[in-house]
Design a protein around this nucleic acid. Structure first.
Lengths: 211, 211, 211, 211
DNA sequence: GATGAATGAGGCTTCATTCAT
DNA sequence: AATGAATGAAGCCTCATTCAT
């Protein structure tokens, strides 16, 4: 009476569906992706798909959770090796390991925006989005607050407000990146400029300088 | 030879449909609005609606154009009375007549974002979005450039780049405002902070200060 | 209190609509022609069109009647100058003045076939089609009968039956001509062959010969 | 791994839809048949129907193919037992097993004509119709050619041309039969006359005689 | 657990015809 | 008479989700 398939197998199957679904969402976007697209990409039957995820929303949220786990993991790691400055840590959370603005964007971003924006009138979805917003907010705010406490950052602005501006920038950039042709958005340059903004706000010494 | 109804009446009818449609789009968002919703809100028959607008996309774009005309008109007006500083002009374009950050957001913004984001894989829509982006970009960039030329602004940054950061901020804020509950987004405070960012970048005299 | 527009003018207007409609029906076929197509081609308003013809069916029937009048007129003329043989007369009715098979087909034929075939379950339309069939039948049958009476044709077959076979041939050829690409139907050759068939049946002297 | 229902069941379901659809097309004709009619007649849901046939055209073509298969099968069979004369074979292909003109017509004929006639401006449809025409043409032409080669038929006419006249006759008769009331078309008599035409053309010994 | 056939609500669009002016 | 805005029935098709096997 032991399960016919190992727990391990199930996890792998689920993960493979999730992987395929991610690709599909990246390609078609949230609204325009159909369960059929996912089925086909994942090589699962309709029923099979619904066994793992009870609907499209559920499926997408699972993908979001995965991403969150990864990110959380990353930032946690980053935090741990916080031998460097809080500024450096902030840059790492924003731009990854190398703490430097680049032209890379999360390819799933456009779909995420779609998901939350088209679902903004759905209470459940909105609550979920809000939760995610607040988690992100806290990560940034905590770092900033710590930096202020230790005197690395000036205290002119509330950590929370700066943190919000970071998220707003990130969202705005993702939006422009989603809508415009590749060569029209200067992701790297804009990121660098925003870093200057932050630098002025947090460490401002008189003139806007690159680090 | 004379039409059954006056030209005026037609314009009004069209305008009234547009008005009703705008309300519907604000309420349900672009994707979730159906032509039926619009019909009912506008008190038009199916066929009547299609007489004016050949499909949902067409209808929405008509609304966008209206908005553009208004905006263009405004900014033009603003530009005319440009007796004030370029900085003031910039603030006016961003925040309206009174040049001061407030909590007001264009209620149609969320739908606009939806429209462009869900349509990002459609060539036509993307081109249209790009055009709009570039028009907006130019408005800001021109003001900044003029300010730099006349020595009002420092020339550290390219006008184009600063202009982009403004749009990115506006889009990002609209996005957050669309997704989060009213009380979670600090539109006014964030706007004020962003103004500080700009102030530092364009007029920075050493320390981040409020105007 | 005299009519604002002359009777003449009305007739001309009607005729011009009819002409335009004919072109449209030729181009799109009966089913796929819309009243809008006609309006535009004729340069009439919707209401104007309906003033003259109360619906699409009515309009098409008017065109049919015109054609009938012309044909009737022609065959009448032909009959009058029936100095020639009945055979020649038959050929004239079938192929026109020159009594010789050519590749010309009535361009409206396909639409006529459509009209009667799609309307075959409509009593009114069916009756109308039947009437037309019988009129055509009679024309041919009368000639054949006369030819038989005067000893020009052999009496092996009933005039009515031969007449039917002519119509069937004409309809069949029109059908094939309507459906197949220009170069796939050998209108002229088939017509010539059918003439041979008739020749054998009516004047057969032993071997199938061309006249 | 195993499908929920047997392959057999699927085939039957498909066949039953096809059967029901055939009845509906016979009753209403091609143009006037709606997918809803078919759904209801077949006892399938909208989605179910579209699972098997992606649109009305597809559905009708499936019916046509079925017919073709049957016919091909028949003529193949007939050809096999070609112990009899080529003339007899020709009669069999035209009139079925008993090689004798009767009053039976394919009840689906009118819809077929409609299908090809209303679709004559559609490239795809036209190509399909042409293909079918040519297949039919070849069947007749091959028999006639063989008959000529073996001296059974005279060689006065090209096999291809005679074959075309057969199709034209069949189409024409189907057309008249479709449009006119039952008792107005003399299917049997006309068929017999046409056989005489053929007899004269292929085996003509001087006078038109019944076989 | 898996399968995929079946469901049916829901959306879009067209077009013949009417009717107030 | 003429106009063309307005109507609304009717058709087509998609797709998330269910459920018998």
């Amino acid at each position: 009476m032991s399960p016919r398939v190992s727990e391990e197998h199930l996890k792998q199957r689920r993960a493979s569906i999730l992987k395929a679904a991610t690709d599909v969402f990246i390609e078609h976007g949230y609204e325009h992706t159909t369960m059929k697209h996912v089925m086909e990409a994942a090589g699962v039957s309709r029923g099979g798909l619904y066994q793992y995820f009870s609907n499209k929303e559920d499926l997408f949220e699972a993908i979001l959770e995965e991403g969150l786990n990864e990110e959380a993991h990353q930032s946690l790691e980053s935090l741990k090796q916080s031998s460097a400055s809080h500024w450096h840590l902030l840059m790492q959370v924003m731009f990854g390991e190398d703490a430097t603005p680049d032209a890379e964007m999360d390819p799933l971003s456009p779909s995420k925006l779609e998901f939350f924006i088209t679902g903004r009138n759905d209470e459940r979805r909105r609550a979920y989005g809000t939760k995610r917003y607040e988690i992100g907010l806290k990560i940034y705010a905590d770092i900033i607050e710590a930096g202020q406490k230790e005197g690395e950052f000036r205290t002119t602005y509330e950590p929370d407000l700066i943190a919000r501006s970071i998220i707003t920038f990130v969202d705005g950039l993702a939006l422009d990146h989603a809508m415009l042709p590749e060569d029209k958005v200067l992701v790297k340059e804009q990121s660098a400029l925003f870093v200057d903004y932050l630098n002025m706000a947090l460490r401002g010494d008189g003139s806007p300088v690159r680090e």
